[in-house]
Amino acid sequence: MNTEELVKAFYTEKQDFLKKYLSENPETEVGQLIKSLNLTKEQSVIMGKVMNSTLTDVFYSILLGLEGSASIGGIQERYDLKDANGNKLNDGDIGGYAYEYFQESE
């Protein structure tokens, strides 16, 4: 795995959460809570945008925190990330890839 693949995996995870939460037949607690609101079509669109923005903020912030360009819980430092084979996952540009996937593609 490399830096871009790591960021892309986070982005894919975010998209999967959105699908699960906004599904017609949700299996997650969050999805069931959203469905229980009996939102109109317009409200459902807004809820989708709220969930998308929220998950984008969370995943983007975590990635920048791991890179060291943002804090996690008030602590800002660069973490040494490696996969099982010892490949460094943050020797590239996590922030750049995160911006590309989470900001530009939205």
Rank of each mutant, 00 (worst) to 15 (best):
T54L: 11
Y97V: 08
L55M: 06
E4K: 15
G73E: 09
I72H: 01
M1C: 11
E100Y: 12
L63D: 00
Y11E: 11
S105P: 05
Q15N: 15
M1Q: 08
I34Q: 02
E5I: 10
A98M: 08
D93M: 05
K41Y: 03
K88T: 12
S105N: 10
Y79K: 13
G92Q: 09
Q76L: 03
V7Q: 02
I62T: 07
S69T: 15
K19Y: 10
I94A: 01
Y60C: 03
Q103S: 06
Y60S: 02
D93T: 03
L6T: 02
E77T: 14
S53N: 12
L37I: 03
V45H: 04
V7M: 02
V58I: 06
T3S: 05
V30G: 00
V7P: 04
Q43V: 00
I75M: 13
Y60N: 01
Y79Q: 09
A98C: 07
T3F: 01
Q15H: 12
E42P: 00
G31T: 04
S53P: 03
V7S: 04
S53Q: 10
G96D: 08
F59G: 00
L6I: 07
M1K: 08
P26G: 10
A84G: 00
K8N: 11
K20Q: 13
S23E: 13
V45I: 13
D57M: 10
E4Q: 15
S44E: 08
V58D: 01
V30S: 08
S23N: 15
